[in-house]
Amino acid sequence: MAETQLERAVALPPSDLAKERPRTRPPRRRRGNPLARILTWAGLGLATVMFTYPLLWLVSASFKPRSDVFDNKLIPETFTFENYLTVWQEAPLALWLGNTAVVTVLSAVLVTLSSAMVAWGFAYFRFRGRDLLFGLVLATMMLPGAVTMIPTFLIWNGLGQVGTLTPLWAGNLFGSAFYIFLLRQFFLGLPRELFEAARMDGANNWHLFTRIAMPLCKPALVVTLLFEFQAAWTDLMRPLIYLRDSSTFTIPRGLKALLDQFGFGGNWHWEIVVTASVITTVPMIILFFLGQKHFVRGIATTGSKG
């Protein structure tokens, strides 16, 4: 998780998420050179194949009978739903998906609300030591997760929560440095007048936050929700640490268990592993297409200022 957070963490121009930036360069470079154009399209085409083919391969293989999984044909010779039925029988998939949904939704919603609160505290109010404190928020992003991993485990162990889903989401109650940073950048772009006017009309601090600031920064909240949704859904390390019984597994943890059982494990049933991989991945692909604009814009704005 640390890696994806950091990857997105660099100065975001205030309120950049709200609007599409106009291209500063008119897009008409070197139309004239046909060779350059051919090379451009060839390069992009090749990259497209590289980026999409593995996923297509995976989906296609999940519809092949066991003996054909490795035949590397894009269209299955014999098309079968068998694998999906087998996986459903072999593994408590509905349970795993349910657990993952619980963890994912709680993680995303809690981290968005708490980070927005904290970000607002750092953006709107002025007080002594604010910048120092905010510097500390940023500094925590540099800390490798391994350093806090063991004591954090001991906390949850002490609270008797190891083996439950709680440790996977409860930490999100306290906000997360990267999202605090991202949302604060956004809040900083809002006009102060708006809030002074609302204050004249009798709005209190809480109203300023919930009725004005939050609705105005919906795009940034959506980006936070989506990023955390993805982070929580795909996490393997924490489920490996905290979950013991297979009935509590999230879907990536379950997928790893299936790989260990059917992939190597002596009985080679790669069609089960392949199919479970598809089931794990497809919700993320759907999420991506639902929130495509936000993902691409969110990631694009993160790296734009050194």
């Binding site: 996923l55 393997l236 997928l255 790989l259 794990t280 991945t281 993320m284 691409v296």
Partner: peptide, 18 residues
């Protein structure tokens, strides 16, 4: 192309290992 290039990033790392 931006969509296509970002797509693998959505794949859970477990599935990438597989």
């Amino acid at each position: 192309f931006r969509t296509v290039f970002y797509l693998p990033k959505m794949t859970p790392p477990v599935a990438i290992g597989i």
